[in-house]
Design a protein around this nucleic acid. Structure first.
Length: 671
DNA sequence: ACGCTAACCTATTCACAAG
DNA sequence: CTTGTGAATAGGTTAGCGT
């Protein structure tokens, strides 16, 4: 929106006179001359009272709308362009660079600094890994699409024409890409199943039918290196990401970017978000181990031949798998995770990478400069490094997910993660933590002082893990949450759900999954229903509340699909009913975003589906589910199939919730 | 070891523009 | 009126420096 309102005085007054529409250079010179003097060290306040500024002030005042107290000036398009260029060149300009920029624009240093800050933040948000909820949301969205795609044909009389998109609930519309729309015909039972399986995993959609080319392409994924953005994208998608990218065109850009993030490191790292995961992730196909993994998996999977096979055995929890298998899983996955060369020393800052990928900018530039930076300020670099380092973690994580949770795996993950994090990069840790900071805030902290606890390695996951008693109290201890997981796996005790939620990283990110109840008391989003407590492999699935909440929201026409999907859905979908502020979407959770009740815990509720029977039971229980899922009710085995077939047609009303609920159900079913 | 400072970051709030 | 986005602010953290 560069449509900044150039105030009437438009042609950037200050310069305009001097340099109306000139190129930056020109502008630069002139400005530099004029501005440098004036603006350079203008007090921050200056902008407000730009008037005072000497010569230009008058002009400036014209250009930049002065914003008295409350009014804010918008950077002019021109300035913005300059800033963008500068940003692309170097997202974190040092003082000199900033100064230079200042000279070129009509902003003072402070403003420039802020601009960059905000820009980075913005960038970060975009590239930020999706939270589980978000992913879930997306996933569901994808599901819808898929289902719709698939299903429609089946159910609708017009198999071919029906554009999936149409079918797609409003929610997804934005997301639905042509691709997704894919072939209506493709659904066959297998497919359906398959879709189901990886649902979002389109890549895995092998489909008997040829059409799914995209998928084929996708399948070829496990490339460690992605030279092109496209590849990255693809990669990202190994699973979810891919899916997302496919599903989310518009927003997607941003979503997909997130996923790409890691890609650039050449490492197929699982999106961090996975790590954070709550179970929602588990449902996801292992991102990194796409094909191979899928093959290995005992659940619905794509055959090597690319055919979707439904493995009746519900996706198991790691627990169900013998260690050996887990191992194999793990190993299987690893290949895809191979560390790229870049992994080691992380040199490339993600953002820069991203930026580099961006068309406009001068790609090359960004990277080097950063390296030069003396301070390790370049968070990105470090983060990235961390990511890279974490690849292993990711792998592990992945493995974990794959395995669905062996205690061992989980533990190892947590530990490794922790250690790596701690040792390697505080940044990352901090980052992840910070990301969730809002959440954390929301969550009552036991320890806490008002201040945020320092993010130190020991404190996080590790600490928790080591904290003994965490395991049991299901309720109060959200913090132990992480720690619990492992235990859960091993024990299969109530916290089972927790296992689901475990964040591989084991750090604060887990908090994301925490959601304070209305009272502010900590609780797991998914409260294990009494049944939950049962020792079994049952896993909680999002459902009822979810759907309900979603439903409500979804119905709100006003909400943009994106929002729905991500924000609103997320909460609902999210295992944790509450999405914390940090929504990716909002990225940072702008306060405004909260409005919608994002904060509200939608979760609060009650819906928890447990793996096995859940489908059956839960469905019944959940209003939404019941509504939508009727078809499933009779037998569990086909549920998925049926679902995919569209019996549950996600009618537009299709409300995400419905779909979501179904999905979750189905998922639960698998598992 | 401390205190400072500068730079960053995240989360939020505010304003504004657009639908 | 709602939503999305950009500009600003507040509170924190970290690293480099000087004492």
């Amino acid at each position: 929106m560069d449509t900044l309102a150039p105030t009437p005085s438009t042609p950037s007054p200050q310069l305009s006179s001097a340099v109306p529409g000139l190129a930056h250079e020109v502008e630069h010179e002139e400005l530099s001359q004029s501005t440098s003097q004036n603006q350079v060290f203008e007090s921050p306040l200056l902008r407000e009272s730009q008037t005072p500024a000497p010569q230009l002030s008058s002009q400036l005042s014209g250009e930049v709308e002065r914003h008295p107290k409350g009014k804010r000036k918008r950077t002019t398009a021109k300035d913005k362009a300059i800033l963008e260029a500068a940003y692309n060149a170097n997202p974190k300009p040092d003082k000199a660079a900033r100064q230079d920029i200042v000279n070129r624009v009509s902003l003072n240093e402070k403003e420039v600094q802020i601009w960059f800050q905000n820009r980075r933040q913005n960038d970060r948000r975009k590239s930020r890994p999706l939270s589980p909820q978000e992913i879930a949301a997306l996933r569901y969205g994808g599901m819808q699409i898929l289902s719709s795609d698939n299903t429609l044909p089946v159910y609708t009389s017009e198999p071919e024409n029906t554009s999936p998109i149409q079918v797609v609930s409003s929610l997804d519309q934005e997301y639905s890409s042509p691709r997704e729309v894919a072939s209506p015909s493709k659904l066959d039972d297998h497919e359906t199943e398959q879709n189901h399986e990886d649902t979002l995993h389109e890549d895995t959609l092998p489909l008997p039918e040829p059409q799914s080319q995209p998928q084929e392409e996708q399948q070829s994924l496990p490339h460690p290196v992605y030279a092109t953005p496209a590849q990255k994208q693809r990669h990202a998608g190994d699973d979810d990401s891919l899916l997302m990218s496919q599903h989310l065109p518009s927003s997607v850009g941003y979503l997909s970017n997130r996923w790409n993030y890691p890609a650039h490191s050449h490492v197929l790292s699982t999106p961090i978000s996975f790590d954070r995961g709550d179970d929602s992730f588990n449902n996801f196909p292992p991102s990194s181990c796409s094909s191979s993994t899928s093959a290995l998996r005992p659940r619905l999977s794509t055959g090597l031949d690319g055919k979707a096979e439904v493995i009746t055995s519900p996706p198991q929890n790691p627990a169900s798998l013998p260690p050996s298998e887990l191992q194999s899983f793990d190993s299987a996955c690893r290949p895809s995770y191979q560390r790229g060369p870049s992994e080691s020393p992380v040199t490339l800052p993600p953002i820069s990478t991203i930026t580099s990928s961006l068309p406009s900018s001068q790609n090359a530039a960004p990277l080097l400069p950063r390296l030069a930076r003396g301070r390790s300020r370049d968070v990105h670099a470090w983060e990235f490094a961390c990511d890279a380092e974490n690849c292993e973690d990711a792998l592990t994580v992945q493995a974990k997910h794959e395995s669905r949770g062996s205690a061992i795996a989980a533990i190892s993950l947590l530990r490794s993660t922790t250690s790596s994090t701690a040792g390697g990069s505080p940044l990352q840790l901090s980052r992840s933590n910070k990301r969730n900071a809002s959440i954390s805030r929301m969550t009552p902290r036991a320890d806490s002082s008002t201040k945020k606890p320092r993010l130190t390695k020991g404190l996080d996951a590790t600490g928790r893990l080591e904290t003994p008693n965490n395991n049991n109290t299901w309720a109060g201890k959200r913090q132990s949450f992480t720690a619990d997981t492992p235990a859960d796996f091993s024990h299969n005790t109530k916290p089972k759900s927790s296992s689901l939620f475990i964040s591989p990283q084991g750090n604060e990110s887990d908090k994301e999954n925490w959601s304070p109840d209305e009272n502010g008391n900590p609780r797991f989003s998914y409260h294990p229903p009494s049944s939950a407590i049962r020792p079994t492999n049952r896993r909680l699935l999002p459902s009822g509340p979810l759907s309900s909440s979603i439903h409500d929201k979804a119905t709100n026409p006003r909400r943009t699909p994106a929002r729905h999907a991500l924000i609103e859905s997320s909460p609902s979908f999210s295992l944790s009913g509450n999405r914390t502020n940090t929504g990716p979407l909002d990225g940072g959770g702008r306060g405004q975003h909260y409005r919608g009740g994002d904060k509200r815990g939608g979760g609060g509720s009650e819906l928890r589906i447990y793996e096995d029977f859940v489908v059956a039971t839960t469905e019944h229980n959940t209003p939404t589910a019941s509504r939508r899922a009727p078809p499933f009710e009779d037998d569990g085995s086909d549920e998925v199939e049926r679902f995919m077939r569209g019996e549950i047609s996600p009618s537009k009303k299709g409300d995400a919730d419905a779909v979501a609920g179904l999905l979750s159900l189905s998922q639960g079913n698998w598992r």
